[in-house]
Design a binder for these strands. Structure first.
Length: 432
RNA sequence: GGAGAGAUGGCUGAGUGGUCGAAAGCGGCGGUUUGCUAAACCGUUGUACGGUCAAAAGCCGUACCGGGGGUUCGAAUCCCCCUCUCUCCGCCA
């Protein structure tokens, strides 16, 4: 969420930056300011009253001590009505505060000034290209054809077990998936300095609010309940490991020397994808459950953008080692996610699809999430500050799987395994 | 799932209706002493919000003793609900 003081003091700036997103959220600022103003007025009123009450209460206490009971009773009668007045005002404050807080949670982050202003994905500039589209002496197959031919994935039985958008990996497919996960975790932990964590897959609402998934994207989440118990507070299947991992230090005040914190985590990701195109058709491009290795950084604000660039490089390294052609784009203001101030997407080339697939999205959310989860650190001056929180996929698996098999498919139907992955799969190719 | 115990400041831990934002100890910070270190001694030590101020500092106020509600002139303290932790039993990968 945005710093209310910033909104108060630089409302025009905030409005202007928000308007570049093209979502109309800048129109919420006036209401926010109004609620803020109203709250401050009410808070002031109640505090004056409370101050009075406290004073009289102390006097009563003193009188009781001196056994001057009649005088004490008189004062009690005098202040009795104050309690109700205070209670009524407190209620008003709570109401206004609730409205303000909710409104604040629905306003997206302000884009960083280095972000290109644009409306849609078509406006996203390409910032880097690695390799080039591979040439094939034969007609390259799609991952669906390859997966069926080599029995990597049983699409029909996956759907039977769960529904459309769920995959059953089989034999070499399951092994390849596992090999990729281990390869990614090892790369980031041993080469890039991340500490591996394994979070719960069922998480509470606070995690979702903290990273900005809620309240806006509740309809995209899977809620879970215990047995037939519809009463207990809902928990959710994680849509990304970002949700639990970024929240590890929620409501903490970290010591300056604890920063920077680099975490990486494997998890499956569950997405309802309500209303999305592509679920319901076969394939692995858009599914309800996929594996991902996520990268999270918690850093000092002054380091945020340098660490952001490094994080993107860490994710790109994956594709380089797997000998895949990709390009990195910067999301324009209109295409950025809710909590992000700046985002790079990495898109890998999938020859069978004839298109680039997003396998990583690396964002600096600045202090937007830290404010939501009240995560702070104490700097050298002893002041509490909000750190920058960064998240990036390093990378998403299902689409990486697609790019890998489509890129490295051979004329004989086998799939070549790039050298860095071979020790993990314990094979140099998947037979056709 | 059953029974019991607990949750207080960075940590340990006292506090059962009134100068308690909270004793004491530890830690941290500053200082004295010292060739240096240590010890000892002295001082200091939370967070948020609101107000004041051009701003910072400072000052004033309010709230915060797991969370929410209640009783009361007044709640860390009494009552109710919830969450979490620990111990024992049961079940279980």
């Amino acid at each position: 969420m945005l710093d209310i003081k910033l909104v108060r003091e630089k409302s025009d700036y905030v409005r202007e930056r928000l308007s570049t997103r093209g979502s109309g959220d800048e129109n919420k600022i006036s209401e926010l300011l109004q609620l803020d103003e109203q709250r401050r007025k009410l808070v002031n009123e109640t505090e004056v009253l409370k101050s009075q009450r406290n004073r009289v209460s102390k006097e009563i206490g003193a009188l009781m001590g001196q056994k001057k009971l009649e005088e004490a009773e008189a004062k009690k009668a005098e202040t009795r009505a104050m309690g109700d007045q205070i209670a009524a005002l407190d209620k008003q404050v709570a109401e206004v505060e609730q409205k303000r807080d909710y409104l604040q949670l629905t306003i997206p982050n302000v884009p960083h000034e280095s972000v290109v202003v644009g409306k849609t994905a078509a406006d996203n500039p390409i910032v880097r290209v690695h390799g080039e589209k591979p040439e094939f002496a034969f007609q390259p197959k799609t991952h669906i054809e390859l997966a069926e031919a080599s029995k990597l994935i049983d699409f029909n039985r996956g759907a039977k077990l769960s529904g459309s958008g769920f995959l059953l990996y089989t034999n070499w497919g399951a092994r390849l998936e596992r090999a990729l996960i281990n390869f990614l975790l090892d790369l980031h932990t041993t080469e890039h300095g991340y500490t591996e964590v394994a979070p719960p897959y069922i998480i509470n609402k606070e995690c979702m609010v903290g990273v900005g998934q809620f309240p806006k994207f509740v309809d995209q989440a899977y809620a879970v309940m215990k047995g037939t118990d519809t009463e207990s507070p809902a928990q959710y299947l994680l849509p990304t490991a970002e949700a639990p991992v970024a929240n590890i230090h929620r409501e903490e005040i970290l010591k300056a020397e604890q920063l920077p914190i680099f975490y990486c985590a494997y998890s499956p990701c569950f997405r309802a994808e309500a209303g999305a195109a592509g679920v319901g058709t076969r394939g692995m491009i858009r599914v309800h459950q996929f594996d991902k290795v996520e990268l999270i950084k918690i850093v000092r604000p002054e380091d945020g953008y340098a660490e952001h660039e490094k994080m993107v490089a860490n994710a790109e390294k994956v594709l380089q080692l797997l000998e895949l052609h990709y390009h990195t784009i910067m999301l324009c203001t209109g295409d950025m996610g809710f909590g992000s101030a700046k985002t790079y997407d990495i898109e890998v080339w999938a020859p069978g699809q004839g298109q680039y697939l997003e396998v990583s999205s690396c964002s600096n959310c600045e202090d937007f999430q830290a404010r939501r989860m009240n995560l702070r650190y104490k700097d050298e001056k002893g002041e509490n500050r909000f750190p920058h929180i960064l998240n990036g996929s390093g990378t998403a698996l299902a689409r990486l799987f697609v790019a890998l098999v489509e890129t490295h498919q051979q004329a004989d139907g086998s799939i070549r395994i790039p050298a860095p992955l071979q020790p993990y799969l314990k094979a140099d190719k998947i037979p056709g």
